[in-house]
Design a protein around this nucleic acid. Structure first.
Length: 463
RNA sequence: GCCGGGGUAACAUAGAGGCUAUGUGGCGGACUGCAGAUCCGCAGACGGGAGUUCGAAUCUCCCUCCCGGCCCCA
């Protein structure tokens, strides 16, 4: 079974073959840090967290780099509003970013380079591009990448240059640009802006160059996977390709992966549209597992329309899987069925789905099929101990990839107290004092402990 | 205008020529003091039209609607 990845470059699913056997380098475009991250960012972050987790599960040694754009027009504007230093503002949101992704159980990347701390490599790269004849310096100290120097513009975007020009917005163009499609790789300083010294005078990097430079600096000339939201395909990723290729003469990334947009009320959720849902708010209301489940319960490339009720639905669905785990953990009967055929088949199907361009939705369906089969065996006490622990092991594997299960249980003191309450309640029930027994159950439920009366005795779990 | 992704049962989503799709919700049943959980069963589908084929939700063409991108973006 080989992993297939949909490559935006070719628009096809391709067998994944890393440059160096057993190793994968992956760069995922991060955020511009001038505000809190929203659920749309979380989708991208969690999708690529899953991708990295899965690649590691497959045995690859993965190096994952994600950047922060901490020098940018909007950061400067926001900082000026607040009357603080732009880097102070970005530092604040970087810290919040980490708080948010930690709350979502996202595993940290191996490096988080910032534009502001990568000026040397950025300036070197700009210089290199100029020297190789792909960029020019204007009198005002702007450096533009010259579109006319490349023969095949639009490889990733798959559009002809003329078509893009005709669809262009009316933006104020610098008259010094030789071609309106030329883009800035270095911007000359304007009054009140943060700036760095460069051979072309004071200024700051263009948006696209930081990624090209940081990729090269951290991962080398060519990387295996480059990821990000599909709103970055043009112009950001297109231009990254041009810059890097101008310098290295080779390709930038072998596989380009782009996640679909999260939509809310039929529009893209976006900071600039102001229709966003902060992750920091969301995690107060929903556990991270539910949010992850919601986001991964659809294919990463498709659009996802957000509604509150679909998040509620994700919550109910996920509880089913949690229930399976706690049933397996507390399983005490000694049946004879190892369920090895069911478990093996589920594993096979699960990984088949994951290998098919990370089809988490399909993989999740397999989990529910398994849950039904297994709970049936549990209910009839025919599952063997061995089968139960086998199944639990698989759920553990799944959790390692998808992050769907919470940390286990309560400490022993607490569980001893719960057991005591259960004993008392059983006695009350025996005496048919149901109002009191129900009170205990209700109060425990309020505390997040669900009691269940079953044929095999009383079970409890966290909800 | 150009490029890309979509339209699947009440809802959210997989699937991609013939095989009972998954979840949530609904209805009926089993279990229960009640609740919960779970199991069993039922209903319900592939935007519209033509074509290819023994057979199309799946392939081809046309139409239609939605969303995204076209230098603010995950």
């Amino acid at each position: 079974m080989t992993l297939k990845i949909h490559n935006t470059l070719t628009n096809k699913k391709e067998n994944f073959i890393p440059l160096e056997e057993g190793k994968v380098s992956i760069y995922v475009c991060g955020v511009t840090v001038y505000d809190d991250i929203h659920l749309g960012h979380a989708r991208s972050i969690i999708v690529f967290d899953m991708v990295v987790r899965y690649l590691r599960h497959c045995g690859y040694k993965v190096t994952h780099v994600t950047n922060f754009t901490d020098v940018d027009d909007k950061i400067i504007a926001r900082a000026n509003e607040e009357g603080i230093d732009p880097l102070e503002l970005s530092a604040r949101y970087i810290q919040r970013y980490f708080e948010d992704i930690d709350a979502l159980k996202v595993r940290r990347a191996d490096a988080y380079p910032k534009a502001s701390e990568s000026m040397d490599v950025i300036i070197d790269m700009v210089q290199d591009i100029i020297e190789k004849g792909f960029a020019y310096v204007t009198d005002e100290g702007n450096v533009y990448f010259s579109i006319d120097k490349v023969g095949d513009y639009g490889r990733l975007t798959k559009q002809r240059l003329e078509d893009m020009i005709s669809g262009q917005r009316d933006v104020l163009q610098d008259p010094d640009k030789r071609n309106p499609m030329d883009f800035a790789i270095w911007k000359a300083v304007k009054p009140g802006e943060i700036a760095w010294d460069s051979p072309w005078g004071k200024g700051r990097p263009g948006w696209h160059i930081e990624c090209s430079a940081m990729i090269r600096n951290h991962l080398g000339d060519i990387i295996d996977i480059h990821g990000g939201g599909n709103d970055l395909i043009f112009p950001h990723h297109e231009n990254e390709i041009l810059q890097t290729e101008a310098v290295t003469g080779g390709m930038l990334a072998r596989y380009w992966m782009h996640n679909g947009m999260l939509q809310i009320q039929d529009q893209k959720m976006s900071k600039s549209l102001g229709n966003f849902l902060r992750v920091s708010e969301l995690v107060k209301e929903y556990d991270s597992e539910t949010i992850r489940f919601y986001l991964l319960n659809t294919h990463y490339r498709g659009p996802l329309l957000f509604t509150k009720s679909s998040l509620e639905e994700a919550k109910s669905s996920l509880r089913r899987l949690w229930n399976l785990r706690s049933e397996l953990e507390s399983y005490r009967a000694e049946g004879s069925d190892d369920a090895s055929d069911i478990i093996d088949e589920s594993k096979g199907r699960f990984y088949e789905q994951m290998d098919d361009d990370f089809n988490t939705r399909g993989a999740i369906s397999v989990l529910f099929d398994l849950a039904r089969e297994l709970t049936r065996l549990i209910a009839s006490s025919s599952l063997s101990k061995r089968g139960a622990s086998e199944a639990l092991g698989f759920l553990h594997e799944v959790d390692n990839i998808l992050g769907f299960f919470p940390e286990n249980g309560l400490n022993d003191d607490t569980s001893a107290l719960i057991d005591l309450l259960i004993d008392v309640r059983q006695e009350l029930r025996r005496r048919k004092m149901f109002d009191l027994s129900d009170t205990i159950r209700n109060r425990l439920k309020e505390m997040g402990i669900q009691l269940e009366d079953t044929a095999e005795g009383v079970k409890w779990k966290r909800i």
